Simulated assay, not measured.
Amino acid sequence: MKKRDLLIGFSTGVAAGFLIREVAHRIEPTKPAELVLHGIKQSFKEEGPIDGSWIYMKTEPFNRQAVSTDVYRGGISRVREGEFEQFEFFADSRTGTVVDLIKL
């Protein structure tokens, strides 16, 4: 086998791997739901302990005025100053950024 053939095969493999990674990255959400929930829980824990949390594993569409994106929906509950609080959040599936937080 010539070095030229080996180099062509290697280059083709690298290019194909890069292309597959790019296509998969555009199709699948960047952040798994567990990582999104972990980040949100850490933010709430800065203010005090939390009692419970949940997140839907599938993304759902979220529309706010002219902006549309796929989000994870979840919730956090805690006791703060003797009062039980519940929150529902919507987090961008690609970045994990909270796009809406609602106190229930």
Results as ranks from 00 to 15, higher is better:
85 E>K: 14
7 L>P: 01
10 F>Q: 06
100 D>Q: 13
43 S>H: 05
9 G>R: 04
28 E>G: 10
66 A>T: 15
28 E>A: 07
59 T>L: 00
23 V>I: 10
38 H>V: 08
95 T>C: 09
75 G>N: 02
22 E>R: 07
47 E>Y: 02
62 F>D: 14
67 V>P: 14
77 S>W: 08
93 S>H: 01
19 L>E: 06
95 T>G: 14
20 I>W: 05
13 G>L: 06
101 L>P: 08
87 F>R: 10
6 L>K: 09
47 E>W: 00
64 R>V: 15
45 K>F: 03
89 F>A: 12
3 K>Y: 09
41 K>F: 01
68 S>T: 15
89 F>E: 08
51 D>I: 12
92 D>S: 10
45 K>Y: 03
44 F>V: 12
29 P>Y: 02
14 V>S: 03
43 S>P: 00
21 R>E: 07
18 F>P: 07
77 S>R: 13
50 I>K: 01
12 T>P: 02
35 L>R: 07
99 V>M: 03
44 F>I: 13
70 D>K: 00
9 G>H: 04
78 R>Q: 09
78 R>W: 03
29 P>D: 06
29 P>Q: 01
96 G>Q: 03
102 I>E: 12
49 P>Q: 02
55 I>V: 06
86 Q>A: 14
72 Y>A: 13
9 G>I: 10
38 H>E: 10
13 G>I: 05
51 D>P: 04
46 E>P: 00
7 L>F: 08
32 P>M: 00
84 F>M: 12
67 V>I: 09
100 D>F: 05
28 E>I: 09
103 K>D: 05
56 Y>F: 10
25 H>K: 05
63 N>E: 15
60 E>L: 06
64 R>S: 15
62 F>R: 01
18 F>S: 07
46 E>Y: 01
46 E>H: 04
68 S>L: 07
43 S>N: 08
12 T>V: 11
55 I>D: 05
30 T>E: 10
16 A>M: 11
68 S>G: 11
100 D>I: 05
12 T>C: 03
6 L>N: 11
99 V>R: 00
57 M>W: 13
84 F>K: 15
22 E>V: 07
64 R>F: 11
79 V>C: 06
34 E>V: 01
16 A>W: 08
10 F>H: 06
5 D>Q: 05
67 V>N: 10
90 F>E: 13
29 P>H: 00
68 S>M: 07
102 I>R: 15
59 T>E: 08
91 A>Q: 02
